[in-house]
Design a protein around this nucleic acid. Structure first.
Lengths: 163, 163
DNA sequence: ACAATAAATATAACACGTTATATAAGTGGT
DNA sequence: ACCACTTATATAACGTGTTATATTTATTGT
C-alpha cells in the first residue's frame, strides 16, 4: 500500500483534494441520475436548476448563477438546447444578449428531478455528512473514508430500503 | 446580482461546489508557482512530491499515491519525462512495469519547491482556513468568501510583507 | 454623427480528469 | 508446453472546466 500524498500533505494540496472529492461526488451522483434514466449529466442539472429557480436568465447571468465562466456556460447551454431542454431567445432592444429558458420538456425534467432525483441525492449526501464537525481536513478525511465505505448511490438505496 | 445556485442548494450540489473551490484554489496556487518561475503545473507537483516522498514508484503505485486513475498518471508522467523532471526505467524480471523516478533536475526542482514555494502555498491556505470550524457547508462558504476577499497569492504576499 | 470604447456572446486551444478498450507480459492449471 | 486468465501500461474518446481572443452590438464623448 502506497501513501496517499494528497491526503498527507494537508493544506498544501487542499485544492487538489477538494477537486478530487468533488469529482468523486459528481461521479456517484451521476450513477443515481442514471438509475432514474434521466438524459442529463450531473453538472448540467445545475444549469436547469438555476433557470428553474431564478426564471429566464441571460448567458452572463447564468454564468454568475452557476459560478463558471461564460465560455463554459455558452457551451453547456448549446448542449442543453440541442437536447431540447433549454431554449434561447433574443432580448428586444439589445441584440447582444440571449435569454435562456426551460422548454416544456425541460420544465418536466426539472419537475421529475425535484420530486424523485434531487431528494435522493440530497439524502445520500446528508447521510455521508451526518455528524461531521471540527477541522476542515478532518471532515474531508471523513468524507473520503465514508465514500470508500459506501458510495452515494449505495447510501441512496439503503435509505429507501429502510427509512 | 443573481443568486449563486450551487451555494444555495446545499448538500444537493456539494460535489459541484467542492470541485469549483478546488479549481479555484489550484488556479491561485498556480499564480504563486508562476511568481517563482517554476515550469510546472500545480497538479504536476503532486506527482513530483509523491516520488520524492516515497522514492521510485511504478505507474500503478503512483496512481494510488496521487489518487488519480492510471491513464491520467501515464499521461502526466509522459509530460514530466518530456520536461526532464522525471525518468522511467524497466523493472528487471517484469517487462510490464515501469519505475518512475526523479531526474537530477527534478530533484533540484523539488528541493527548491520545498524551500521556497510549498511553504508559501501552505501558509496562504492556512491563512485562508484559519479559525475554520463547525458545519462543512459553513466552512465552504467561509472559504469562498475568503477567496473572494483575498486570493491565495495575495495572502502569500501579505504574510511575507509583515510576518 | 461618428470614432473610440465597452459589453455580451462565440470560438479556439488547452488542462486534466474520466471510462472503455487495446496491447504486451507474466502466471497457473492441465 | 500451452491455453486461459490476470496484470501493467498505453491509447482513444470524451466531459467539463479554464484562458485568450474574435465578433457583434451598444454606448459615449466630442
Amino acid at each position: 500500500m502506497v501513501e496517499d500524498v494528497v491526503r498527507s500533505y494537508g493544506y498544501l494540496t487542499l485544492g487538489t483534494r477538494m477537486k478530487r472529492i468533488g469529482e468523486r461526488l459528481q461521479a456517484d451522483t451521476q450513477k443515481i441520475i442514471e438509475e432514474s434514466g434521466a438524459p442529463v449529466q450531473a453538472s448540467q442539472y445545475t444549469f436547469l436548476a438555476a433557470v428553474d429557480r431564478s426564471g429566464p436568465l441571460t448567458i452572463g447571468e447564468l454564468s454568475e448563477a452557476v459560478g463558471i465562466t461564460q465560455p463554459g456556460v455558452t457551451r453547456t447551454v448549446a448542449q442543453l438546447v440541442a437536447g431540447g431542454l433549454l431554449q434561447t431567445a433574443q432580448v428586444s432592444g439589445d441584440q447582444r444578449r440571449r435569454i435562456v429558458s426551460l422548454t416544456p420538456r425541460g420544465e418536466q425534467l426539472v419537475a421529475t428531478a425535484k420530486a424523485e432525483i434531487w431528494p435522493r441525492v440530497r439524502g445520500a449526501v446528508a447521510d455521508l455528512c451526518a455528524g461531521l464537525d471540527g477541522p476542515l481536513l478532518d471532515q474531508l478525511a471523513a468524507i473520503e473514508d465514508g465514500l470508500a465505505a459506501a458510495p452515494l448511490d449505495r447510501r441512496a438505496a439503503k435509505r429507501e430500503g429502510k427509512p
